[in-house]
Amino acid sequence: MTGADLLLLALGAVAVGAGLLVVTTRHLVRAGLYLVVCLAAVAGLYLVLTAELVAWVQVLIYVGAVVVLLLFAVMLTRAPIGASDDLDRPGWPAALVGGGAGLGLAVLLVDAFRWSTVELPEAGTAERLGAIVFGSWVLPFELLSVLLLAALIGAIVLSRPEIGASPEEERR
């Protein structure tokens, strides 16, 4: 076992542990904070795998924006300090689905790769990623950007009911 293997295992354990805490804790906001730990550990995994850019994208988008929005929304509505005992959580079906999916994927991967080793590709620098994204993957990239733009405009239209309303409705 090399140092990288150990790091991968440790970070994986942190990610899984924090993920478990997210779904088992009775503290609403703390669940969001555990999610920060979990996503940061995943970013660490990317770093160990030399995918630097992806790792920092993970931090910027997920830790810095997505979870923050989530926490923001929770704090705007209801964020009691301490355990909330009235959380409605059907635990067993969720555990079954989550555990089943995780276990199934793990078995599938182990069966597919056995003990074959895969050489790490060259480091995921910004230059290489850019060349690939704007080279062979440029069409999916453009499609995704159109999809995101549509989602953005949709969100704006949904959140502002006066857009597209008839003049009488607007006066009301």
Partner: peptide, 13 residues
Amino acid sequence: DIGLFFVLAVVGV
């Protein structure tokens, strides 16, 4: 290599 990106990501935390 991606210092600028690192800075922006970390400050966002």
